Amino acid sequence: MSSSSMLPAAATAASKRLILVHGTGHGGWCWYKVATLLRAAGHRVDAPDMAASGADARPLRDAPTFEDYSRPLLDALRALPPGEKAVLVGHSFGGMSVALAAEEFPDKVAAAVFLTAFMPDCAHPRTHTIEALPAGLDWMDSVTDEGHAPPSVFLGPQFLRRMLYQLCPEEDYTLSQSLARVSSYYVADQRRRPPFSADRYGAVSKVYVVAKQDLAMVEQYQRQMIASVPVAEVREMAGADHMAMLSAPEVLAGHLADIANTYA
């Protein structure tokens, strides 16, 4: 982490806007450590709940499409003052929402950051990167319901503890057990959409942050996505599991502050 990233607000040269997007079954709450550090450094940080996630009271059936699910992020970009841009940070499935936002509002995105996240390309269907997840992943006690509208997934407590939170403090795992919710990958809905376009999503600067100790989206899979999508830079977090914002918050906040200062 650079020595300047976490300076007090009074010492920062300029405040940057970052929007942090959570992954499946989670909410804006999972960013509480990183958001606090970035705000202490003088940055403006939003960590919205996607629809039917976190503290958003709607049931999943009230977010039937991926665009419905991602609307809080789209609305946040739409509400930016003219000429202002934000650095978008997508974690895990949040990378798909960031890609959609970059497709819809490329002129409002300073950079799209993918933190051990799904990063789609412009050559294949939008779901290609999700469907390319290694088949050997053990979902353990997670529960899927293809008959639900939209098809739902609930990440089980054993799966979370062993595959996503294995390096996280116990209290953060305990927090997840109070706040985790049923969600969806919206695969069928996204299959009906055209690929992301090269002149919109493809034109936005992208940064990939590799979590080297991720047991679910393993490093090899992350590298496969990086090889298929032009990125401005790749950063690595050696001691981070899938929930890098909880297992290595100071290091991640330093990377995000540096990225914001570079691209915003």
Rank of each mutant, 00 (worst) to 15 (best):
E171I: 14
F154H: 11
M225N: 04
P48D: 08
A149L: 14
A101E: 04
L137C: 13
V229T: 08
A203C: 10
H43G: 07
D141L: 08
W139H: 13
A264R: 09
L20N: 05
R192G: 13
V45L: 00
T262Q: 13
A203K: 08
D56Y: 03
A203G: 11
A253N: 05
T24W: 00
Y32E: 15
M96F: 02
L18V: 04
T36L: 07
Y185H: 10
K85W: 13
Y201C: 03
Q177S: 10
D199Q: 06
D68Q: 10
Y208Q: 15
K108G: 05
R193M: 12
Q222M: 08
A14S: 12
V231Q: 07
Y201E: 06
S142R: 13
S92R: 01
A51R: 12
T12L: 12
I226D: 03
V113L: 07
I130T: 11
R223G: 00
A86Q: 04
L137R: 15
S3K: 14
A260N: 06
V207Q: 01
G28C: 02
K108H: 08
L137W: 12
A188Y: 09
G156R: 05
R191K: 13
P8F: 01
L160F: 04
M163Y: 07
D68F: 02
T262V: 03
V209S: 04
K206E: 01
E250Y: 11
Y208R: 07
R192M: 07
V207E: 01
A198N: 03
K206D: 00
V209D: 02
A132F: 05
H148A: 14
P157R: 09
M119W: 04
V229W: 07
S4P: 01
K108Y: 09
G156S: 05
V143S: 09
G83K: 13
V187C: 06
Y165H: 08
T65I: 05
P82R: 14
L115V: 00
K33Q: 11
S2G: 12
P195T: 00
R192K: 10
A13H: 06
A40E: 14
E219I: 08
D75W: 10
A52S: 15
Q166R: 14
L18D: 06
S247E: 12
E146G: 15
G95N: 05
S53F: 01
A52N: 05
S197Q: 09
A257G: 07
A244K: 12
P106K: 09
V98H: 08
A14N: 11
P106E: 03
P151G: 06
A188R: 14
S247V: 11
P195W: 01
A232G: 11
V251T: 13
D138H: 10
V231H: 03
R161M: 10
V209E: 03
K212G: 15
A211D: 11
A117V: 00
M119G: 03
H91K: 00
A11I: 05
P151H: 15
A102N: 12
T36F: 09
V209Y: 09
D258M: 10
H26D: 00
G239F: 11
L246R: 06
V113H: 04
P150Y: 06
N261C: 05
L164K: 04
T12I: 15
M243G: 10
A57I: 03
A111V: 09
A47K: 10
E131V: 08
Y185V: 06
G94L: 02
D75V: 11
V218M: 09
L133C: 10
E171M: 07
E146P: 15
E171Q: 12
P59G: 09
A132Q: 15
